[in-house]
């Protein structure tokens, strides 16, 4: 089988993997690196569960060939919490605001929100909705997810009681 060698930064570490050419980024992250927080919800880029950041931009890892990330940086949900498991403010906000039910969409949601806030630190509720439109959730009706993202204000703190 034809293998491609891929070197990239993964959650802050320089890593290398050799995978078949047709491996998707999702498959490589789950199978080679056991980053099981990257979820496959549809495999077609229609649900956003597999969202990761490549060079700080949100992408559907199910639609991307692993070879694409050679020389790039990749961040997954596992790379979000800081040392000693200190949660990212977005993670804290999702917990506190009840934005998590079954949780399958949650890692992708949080990564999408991360990318959104990096570009627009103070989005309106509508900007949050449009910025995260590529992430489907069947449990929450999205309201509490909007609450959670809205609560994470400029400077990265999680404050206030939300709406």
């Amino acid at each position: 089988m034809i293998q491609v060698k891929i070197s990239f930064q993964l959650n802050g570490d320089a890593v290398t993997a050799e995978v078949p050419d047709h491996t998707t980024l999702l498959e490589m992250l789950r199978e080679e690196f056991e980053l099981l927080g990257v979820k496959e919800g549809c495999g077609h880029g229609e649900c956003g569960s597999c969202t990761v950041l490549v060079d700080q931009k949100s992408v559907n890892s199910c639609l991307m060939l692993a070879a694409y990330v050679n020389g790039r940086t990749v961040q997954t949900i596992e790379g979000l919490a800081g040392a000693q498991g200190r949660l990212d403010p977005l993670q804290e906000a999702f917990v506190k605001h009840g934005a998590v039910q079954c949780g399958f969409c949650t890692p992708g949601m949080i990564m999408s929100a991360k990318a959104l806030l990096a570009e627009n630190p103070n989005p309106s509720r509508d900007e949050i909705r449009w910025g995260m439109a590529g992430n489907l959730c069947r449990c929450t009706g999205y309201v509490k997810i909007v609450d959670a993202v809205e609560s994470v204000c400029k400077g990265g703190c999680s404050c206030g009681e939300g709406s």
Partner: peptide, 13 residues
């Protein structure tokens, strides 16, 4: 907050 939310926001469930 839901008891397992901490796990779920870290992709650990």
């Amino acid at each position: 907050p839901k008891l397992d939310a901490l796990e779920k926001v870290q992709g650990k469930a």
